[in-house]
Structure formats: C-alpha cells, structure tokens
Design a protein around this nucleic acid. Structure first.
Lengths: 242, 242
DNA sequence: TCGTGCGGTGTACGGCGTACACCTTGGCTG
DNA sequence: CAGCCAAGGTGTACGCCGTACACCGCACGA
C-alpha cells in the first residue's frame, strides 16, 4: 500500500512513521498477523531495517499502545469530577474501539510506558481534584481496573454465529438444553426484536452500566468519608454481608 | 522431572495426563516457555506424540483452562445469593492465584469451552436463584466481567523493583517528579510502614473492595426493581450525573 | 494367523524474532 | 575538494516455534 515505484527514492523511515504504519497495519490485517516481516514489507523495506527505529518487537508494541493512548481526549474542564472522568473514560473507549487489537496489547504489556503513566497520572489527578483522599483514590483506581481504558473482558467472546438461520436455531436449542441460565440471559435483551443470541447485547450500554455503577459507588464512599483504615478489619466497602 | 530410566516402559499418555502435565509445567516455567516441544520433553516423548491427544496448541490451552476452572469450588448452599456468589468468586480467585498464567490464558481464548460455560451458567443461576430478573442478571454478569474469574487487569503491572534501596529511592524520586499523583497513591497505603512503592498494595483487599462495591450496587438495583427498559433513554443505573 | 488401529517416531517445512557483518549515502570538517 | 563518519538500509543465517505427513511396533480381536 505504501509501495514505491522503482526509481522514486523512499523518504527515510523514522520511529514515528514505523509506529503509525504498525497501527494502521494492525487495524487492517489484525494484530496476530502483524509481524516484523509483514510490517517491513508494508513499508517497502527489509525486516531488519525496522530495528534501526525500534529496539525489538516488544518496543514496537509499546509504541503502538502509545499511539492509541495519544488519541484519548484531554480532560474536559468546568464540570464535576464524575462527569469529567466519565467523559474521559468514554473517550478512551472510543479510541480503543477504533483499534480492536489495542485492549489485548495493553493487557499484554509487562510494564507501563511513559505515555501510559501520563494518562493514568492524569486520571488519578482528576479524582484528587474532585476531593478524593489519597487512600480512596488508590482503591477506586484499582476498582476501575481495565475500565479506565474503556474496555472490559468480554465474558462471551465473539463467536461468529452460523449465517444459516436453521443452524442458528439448532445451535441455540443445544445451548438452551445444556446451559439454560445462559440461554435465558442471552435471549433476554433481544427478546422483543426476536434477534439472535448475543446480538441483542449492546456493548456500549453494558460498559456504561458498569461504569456508572462504579462511579456512583465511588461517589457514595467519598461522601461518607470512607477510609480504608476503618475497613481493614472486615474488608467490605459498604458493609456487605460477606 | 517425569523422565523415565531407560528400560522401564512409560505408561501411555492420555489427554488428561497431557493437560495436567501442561498445567504443572506452566506453573513451573511460565506460560511463555510452555511449548509443544518443552511439554513433550517433560513427558519424555517426542513433540508430535502430543498431537495424538490434543488437536493443536489452542486446544491444549483450552484444556488447561478447563483444568483450572475445575478447581473452583461448587456453590455453597444455605446462604443468600450475595454470600454464595462472593464465596464462589473468591474460590475462583484462589484457583487462579495458584496458576498465575491462567488469567492471561482465559482472556486469550477466542471461544469458551464447555467447562467454562458450565461455570458461567452456574453463576448466572445463582443470581437467578437470588431472585434477580433475567434482565438485571444479564447486566450484572457483564459488569462483573473478568471478576467472575477472580481477577482484574493490573493497572501497574509487576515491575520488579531494584533490590538496591538506593536505586529504589532514586526510581521513586523520578516517579514522584514526573507523576506526582501516581506517586502519591502508590505511597499512600504503604505510608506507615515506610514500605516500597506498590509493595504496600494488598491485591486481595483491592479485589474484595471492588467486588463488594459491585455486589452492593447489584443488591441495591435488585431491591429497587431496576429494569433496563426504564433506563435505556439515559443509561445510568442509579441516576448518575453523566 | 492375520489384519487393524492406537500410541509413538522422524523428518521436514514455513514462519517467526533478531544477531551480525556489510554496504550506501549525504553532510560536515579539515 | 578530499576524507570521514554516522545514519539508514541490506543480506545472510540461526534457533526457536507449530505442525503436516509418512512411518513403525505392538497389543488385541477375528
């Protein structure tokens, strides 16, 4: 795609161009098909040429994460912490949805890059600016988990259903027989439209549902002046029965 | 480790022995070092012999997940849904902590196995038995996300700190300069003991904090008779400001 | 006695990341 | 202008990986 006609000299590579090409290629052919070799070919260059710009594949992946994280909007001002954080996280989600491989790559990185730390630092700062104690902020960041990035582990990963509605119905009957509870909730939201299993499930709604549930919980703890020292004896944030 | 002395005939392999050996080996040398070749060697067999018992490496990984999921305790009876689910999830967490690679492998599976579906089905059933509507159960399962498995994406993945306390202090000063908010919350819980960054962070506490926050939230929605149809217009479960 | 099939073997292929030595080129310095 | 040097790009090769395919020995039922 970026191939050159013979004779026209290619502009020299640099780290940034390599990273952007990698992101685009991963978007295109999937992260599992992205290799140093395929990326080099895309750039019209020999594989080893890439090593002049990134130390190794790990660093390439780190850099790709940085590109995606760079797409997250900066914090909005002039609102309460809850709205601001909500919007920031939904912006992160939008960035990740543009690059479906990104969540998996973020999870796989053994250590955060500076860009990643910048983002996390700023989210922490938003809680602090909202008046959260250091203590509570620590715990809510953990509670957010991968949700700060705008994604959650899919419980029922995308199993592309058979196109044939006959086979679909058969698959569903088998599911219903063996796993009645799953069948029930898979069917639930799609019930009215008579839609297919799992298809009726609105991922964005699920994400916001959980996010708001957490944010509301955080708000309540904050208002109550929650402190971990009080709870360490019996670790339940809101006095659960457990 | 399972090597045979020459002459003594090895008992023939079977799928179960292969899977258990794979789990043990992954525990031992790490999932990234587990290859068909290393596993075969461990079993005193040629790599291709494994293919008589598993179709390919993907199926091996699926089977390994099944072994781990099989270690999760069955539901406890005679309590309310919240206690029962809490205990089940904490049991799942114990299983996963015994096999540190397991969470990553679970995440990486493109489709659930029957054993995985069995577990999920039974958790869904526990909510339903607790009186949750199909609708609400669907959403709380999504909200739980990977937490049904007893793990959460680590925000600050384990960066083994330099042993030298001098270097440690230097690293921390740099962190504090560049990322003051992160430094603050990293320091927070360890403040009293003067412990090291992140070391003072009790993962189990963080997990239960978030789990109980969610379960308490679920309970409230359930008591209020929450229905998604009411909220679809403005998707905030408890009337958040967002 | 003779298939037959199950468990295990041996060889080989194509793909991966990347070490290392090399070459080309453009720009700076003397 | 000559000479040099570093940055960018090349070519070859190595050791891993998953796994296709043909084969072999042996226990067992007919």
């Amino acid at each position: 795609m970026v191939q050159q006609v013979a004779g026209a000299r290619r502009a020299p590579l640099n780290r940034d161009r390599v990273l952007r090409a990698a992101v685009a290629l991963a978007d295109d052919i999937g992260i599992e098909s992205l290799s140093m070799r395929s990326l080099a070919q895309e750039l019209g260059v020999v594989p080893m040429a890439l090593y002049k710009h990134v130390a190794n594949k790990e660093e390439l992946l780190d850099g790709m994460v940085d590109v995606v994280v760079g797409e997250i909007d900066p914090p909005v001002g002039g609102t309460d912490w809850k709205t601001a954080i909500r919007q920031r996280i939904l912006s992160a989600r939008r960035a990740l949805l543009r690059h479906p491989w990104a969540s998996r790559v973020i999870e796989s990185r053994p250590r955060p890059t500076l860009v990643v730390l910048d983002y996390l630092n700023s989210v922490v700062g938003m809680f602090r600016a909202g008046g959260f104690s250091v203590d509570l902020t620590h715990h809510v960041m953990h509670a957010l988990g991968s949700r700060v990035w705008g994604f959650t582990q899919e419980l029922f990963p995308g199993s592309p259903l058979p196109a044939d509605p006959e086979a679909q119905a058969a698959a569903f009957r088998e599911l219903a027989g063996r796993y009645p509870h799953i069948a029930e909730i898979a069917m639930g939201p799609a019930h009215d439209e008579g839609s297919v299993v799992g298809q009726g499930c609105d991922d964005q709604f699920e994400f916001e549902f959980a996010l708001d549930l957490l944010l509301d919980g955080f708000e309540k703890l904050h208002q109550q002046g929650w402190r971990s020292a009080l709870m360490r004896v019996r670790p339940s944030p809101a006095g659960g029965t457990g």
